[in-house]
Write a protein that binds this DNA or RNA. Sequence first.
DNA 1: CCGGTTAGTTAGATCTGTGAATATAGTGGG
DNA 2: CCCACTATATTCACAGATCTAACTAACCGG
Lengths: 404, 404
Amino acid sequence: MQQVSDSSQSPGYDPAPTSSRGLIVDRIRSAGTLSRVELTQLTGLKAPSVTAVVRRLIDDGLVAETGRGASTSIGGKPRTLLQIRAAARYVVGVHLSEDHLTYVLVDYAGGVVARWRRDGPGDDSDPEQVVARVAIETGELIASSGVDPALVLGLGFVCPGPLIRNRGVTSAPPSMTRWVGFPIRSRLEERLGMPVLLENDATAAAAGTRLTTSHDVSVMAALFMSEGIGSGLRLNGNVYQGAHGNAGEVGHICVQIGGPRCWCGGTGCLEALAGPAAVVAKARAAGLDLGSHRHSGVAAFAAIARLALSGDSRAEAIIRDSAAWIALGAQTIANMYDVQLLVLTGPAFAVAGTIYLPILQERILSSVFGRSVGTKVVLDERGHDAAAIGAALMMLKSEHAISA
Amino acid sequence: MQQVSDSSQSPGYDPAPTSSRGLIVDRIRSAGTLSRVELTQLTGLKAPSVTAVVRRLIDDGLVAETGRGASTSIGGKPRTLLQIRAAARYVVGVHLSEDHLTYVLVDYAGGVVARWRRDGPGDDSDPEQVVARVAIETGELIASSGVDPALVLGLGFVCPGPLIRNRGVTSAPPSMTRWVGFPIRSRLEERLGMPVLLENDATAAAAGTRLTTSHDVSVMAALFMSEGIGSGLRLNGNVYQGAHGNAGEVGHICVQIGGPRCWCGGTGCLEALAGPAAVVAKARAAGLDLGSHRHSGVAAFAAIARLALSGDSRAEAIIRDSAAWIALGAQTIANMYDVQLLVLTGPAFAVAGTIYLPILQERILSSVFGRSVGTKVVLDERGHDAAAIGAALMMLKSEHAISA
DNA sequence: CCGGTTAGTTAGATCTGTGAATATAGTGGG
DNA sequence: CCCACTATATTCACAGATCTAACTAACCGG
């Protein structure tokens, strides 16, 4: 076990915007458009402070006034609406999975400017080569978008599996074993010449699900399913990472004593029983025709989902069986985290979420705790890119973090 | 479902000490004794700020200098040690369970000055009467300790079951159904005339496990077993409460599909399968002689634990079976929260912890995530009083909370 | 006794946020 | 059309916290 002494003694959650400047930028960004009065309510600051901070943001070209708000029925000066200047800055988000590399270019307002999807590194890829490729493709992405590279603040990189905060992964599924121990972050920073943030895919997805999921949701979680299953917790816009950056590993909780062996070494893991790979294996065993898809990965899972949605009863039974197990994971998240909202996201839910959603909803509402507080479960409409977008947004947020 | 609009818009975790005053008091309290230099390192403040804050604390009689620290081998002025003035303030902690009322009087340094244990309210008790009794007994506790009542800052009250933050419980085990919806906090404040903090027993226990569990543990959880099973998460000395104050309800995660029905309405709950009540029921069914103990509760569980520890193989088998299930809960906590340390606490672990500990340890270390980061599992030596002490400590901490 | 070393303080500057008063921009009534 | 009325936003003077820089305090070893 390499003992890691992280330079910044991380407190278990990501750097909350200590500066009121960052706090205000975050609020405007997640609301889309906001007045100064609302900012005083949201931040707890007094009006003069808000005025001062906002003026500097406008002077710096990060925020712009954008017309008047709806005047109240009674009268009074209408609120001046503020908005992030989208073109002020940019960040890149990259999601590495077993068979895909997803790139997004996100503007300062949090909008996706460009989105690339490249066939992934493939089995047993060499991390050094992948890093080189990411650096090149990131440059191409920025160039092809016509964005001034000087305005790009940095890159957020997400990968599956448990990781050492801002270093690399500590273990990985069979096809990515060469990534274990590889110093992803520092190698990327060297190649790119810009700050890089490394994050777990599920945690990033929690940051990436559209912040505007109703204003009064301050505690929410993402259940993320790609090749693996993970979850992330978001508190007031800050993700919870745990002591070592591995919080939310719901895919490797044991839901069946004596269950099947998992690549992680355990038995009865949720992922081994009901993850996409397990679904594909069962479908193959049942003799389903998955077409020309590769022997594993999300593509094969998507094929099964399409069969199920088009009425194939065997495919549907297999997926509903998976959903029954995953519902246990969802219930565990609700019980352990006590969230107001659970968002289903990631590539697997993007293709099969409509089958999973009602089953998970029903399970959560059947537990007292879910029912008594009305925990909501919803599907993320951008599940395919949630992790990459989340990585980018986390990088955006870190801009104003205290750098003591 | 009564929609509760909490006065303070709580962010999902308890008020972090925003004032550096509170931050410094907390640090000194948890360290026991500390110098100004160490405070600069721990808080991130510079020396002059620490000097200023500490001077005011000394002037206010909350902190005292207490001799010199060990001089470094090389030379230089030895550090002046600071210490909380224990007699400066006091707080009361009360733990209500099905069959006991536990009182602790805690001084400003966090030390337990007095401890009372009273036979509990009994089945189906009237909340109003219990509140009256608690008010009277709290007065007696303070009086008999010779503490000036004016120095008592407030009372922390913990009870089992999910609660609405600072209001009352939303559901309860069969013997406490009359507590559901009862406005515990406001009624207690009216009777006592001092601030009352209401908290879940497991969450409070997380706050109560001695803070000095090694200085570099910033993310830890408590697994609490009394009549029920719960858990609490502590981040840098602040407990995580979740959106509604119900985080960590590990007792009602489903660990066996189609398992036995639980009082909460679910099936296969950890608590229903392996909680103390289930252990007692199994022992009774197996014909074990539990002596003159009441038909349920921790007392009967303790009798079984004593049998097991004294070599009764049937009792041991029953408890080891329970431990195997509870180990799943412990693993879930480790995976979801990613903690550095898991403390077993509460009355049930106080009597049977030595049987549970190795089984839980082994399970956690058998999961990659536990093994790769070396999650520690330990037994709290003050399990009986952890919840009450935790309630008191949380009240102590809230003293310096921002009251905007 | 004196340089070396670490701990802690004082003094002054800066920055942040506050409160009170004021300016701005609309609504609706006479 | 002018005038209260209302809500939004800004200005200005001040209080507080925290920083930098320079200084004093206490102890070591020779």
